Amino acid sequence: MAKRLDISDLNIYYSDFLAVEGVTMAIEPRSVTAFIGPSGCGKSTVIRSLNRMHEVIPGARIEGRIALDGEDLYGREVDPVRVRRQIGMVFQRPNPFPTMSIHANVIAGMRLNNKRMSKAAADEVVERSLRGANLWNEVKDRLNRPGSSLSGGQQQRLCIARAIAVQPDVLLMDEPCSALDPISTLAIEDLIGELKQEYTIVIVTHNMQQAARVSDQTAFFNLAGVGQPGKLIEMDATEKIFSNPSKKATEDYISGRFG
């Protein structure tokens, strides 16, 4: 697990509209990379392109290259379903399957992949994944209750457990704490710090303090104006981005002058 992502000259289109232009970056294994920037600058578009989730929108396409440990994820023979299995995703709002139990939610991805398991094997995956998401002790006595019966923060950790159950190489998180209270947010941030020991993690966040707390590298995106493509302005070690950025636009955004 935990592989390197290399992005080269990435342009992302929705039909004829160029949404993101000229992104080149390297995302290191066993680290947390934060994407920051104002709304509409392409952060979520880029993160969704990493596991081809943006392709669910008709007309979406890319130019350039995204490689996972050297393998072109957009190669002609590459199955997008396999890419999404290798690169899991946790969304902005917790989205457990409401009619499924906690147990069934965790192994839902494996079932969708037509993976047959004995009850003992399924139970082992559920426990491993819930422990990995720091949720096991809270739910081990009610695994047959609906996932929707949990609190918002617990539901988000359940979604993380579901994502890591299939043992991906990379974990993407698109504003995973924006719908959560401060205590649940802290729990997710602590969990991110633990998960990076095994996974390559990319997180989109509007919370500057969160980016500073959880990430090793930070990438700042911006756009010149309405209707213009989003661009990567600067990427560096998080400590440098927040203390001594190279670009004035980065400094202006972090200091709250815009965005």
Rank of each mutant, 00 (worst) to 15 (best):
L223C: 10
K115F: 03
T250F: 04
S178R: 14
K196R: 15
G256T: 15
A133P: 14
L180H: 10
I62Q: 05
V83N: 01
R48C: 08
R84V: 02
A120T: 13
S44T: 15
L180G: 14
D252L: 13
L158N: 06
Q156S: 04
G153L: 09
L130E: 11
V125K: 15
L5W: 03
E21L: 06
L171I: 05
S255Q: 13
R85L: 06
G227R: 05
P176D: 05
A67H: 00
R52N: 03
N137W: 07
Q86D: 09
P229W: 11
P229D: 00
A26Y: 00
D216Y: 09
V125M: 09
L50R: 02
R61Q: 07
D9P: 07
R30P: 01
G256D: 08
G193W: 03
A163Q: 08
K3S: 09
S118T: 15
V166R: 14
L232K: 06
L135A: 08
Q217A: 07
K115Q: 15
N11H: 15
F242R: 02
I254E: 03
L68V: 01
R48E: 03
S49H: 00
V81K: 09
A108V: 07
G37W: 07
A122E: 15
L50W: 04
Q86K: 15
V126C: 13
S246V: 13
Y74T: 01
V23I: 14
R30E: 12
L112R: 09
P176N: 10
L143M: 12
V20K: 05
I102M: 08
I233R: 13
E127P: 12
E251D: 13
V20N: 00
E234H: 15
K240C: 07
R30N: 14
F17M: 09
Q86E: 14
P38E: 03
P229S: 04
P176I: 04
G64K: 03
Q210W: 00
Q197F: 04
R84E: 03
S15Q: 14
Q167H: 11
M25P: 09
